[in-house]
Simulated scan of single mutants.
Amino acid sequence: MVFYLLSFTAELENLTNLQPRDGCDDPNYVYGFKLKCENCGEVTQKETYVTLSETVSIPNSKGTANLVQKCKLCGRDGTIQMVPKYGEPLTLDASQKEALAKLMVFECRGFEPIDFIFGDGWVAESTSGTKFDVDLSGGEFAEYDEQGECPVGISNLQAKFKVAKKQERYGRTTYV
């Protein structure tokens, strides 16, 4: 099993706290990405989608996962289990520093997640406190904040999967 940390960044204009609608652990937020088979290297043609609220039984096991799928080329099974409680919103300060915000950790067996797809279901807050529902499926967002009397926007979206190490420190689990 390998842990992958999904992190993201964007250029935020007069916005902060960009995250899925009910937080990074939103049980209904749909994470979409392509998968690469760790056995044969085949990349899925279509995007794969997972949510925290949906689990399925793993064949020949007593466990469950958020995704169980066969590679179309070699026929090997792979699973993905989402690991909540490690995500954080992207703040304006982090955006200006071009820092990555942690979004979700995935425990993967047989597959490597690649190419995260930004979609609908995000929320951000303007610097004046106005909340905005954000659809990032077009790759950017632009609006006007009436209360703050300024434009708000999101551009230059970037997401990155990296292999993460699970660490136990001071009785707390982290992924780095």
Rank of each mutant, 00 (worst) to 15 (best):
M1R: 06
L6I: 09
L6E: 15
A10T: 14
L12M: 13
L12K: 01
E13K: 15
L15V: 05
T16I: 00
L18K: 13
D26V: 12
Y29I: 15
Y31G: 05
G32I: 02
L35K: 00
V43N: 04
T48N: 08
Y49I: 00
T51Q: 09
T55H: 05
V56Y: 13
N60H: 09
S61P: 10
K62D: 07
T64S: 05
N66I: 09
C74F: 03
T79K: 09
Y86E: 14
Y86L: 04
L90A: 06
S95W: 12
Q96A: 07
Q96W: 08
A99Q: 14
A99G: 12
L100A: 11
V105A: 12
F111K: 04
F111H: 11
D115Q: 03
G119F: 01
D120I: 05
A124C: 03
S126T: 06
D133I: 00
L136F: 10
G138F: 01
E140M: 01
E143L: 02
G148Q: 11
G148R: 11
C150K: 15
C150L: 08
V152R: 13
N156F: 00
K165W: 03
K165Y: 02
R172K: 15
T174I: 15
Y175S: 12
Y175E: 14
Y175R: 13
V176F: 02
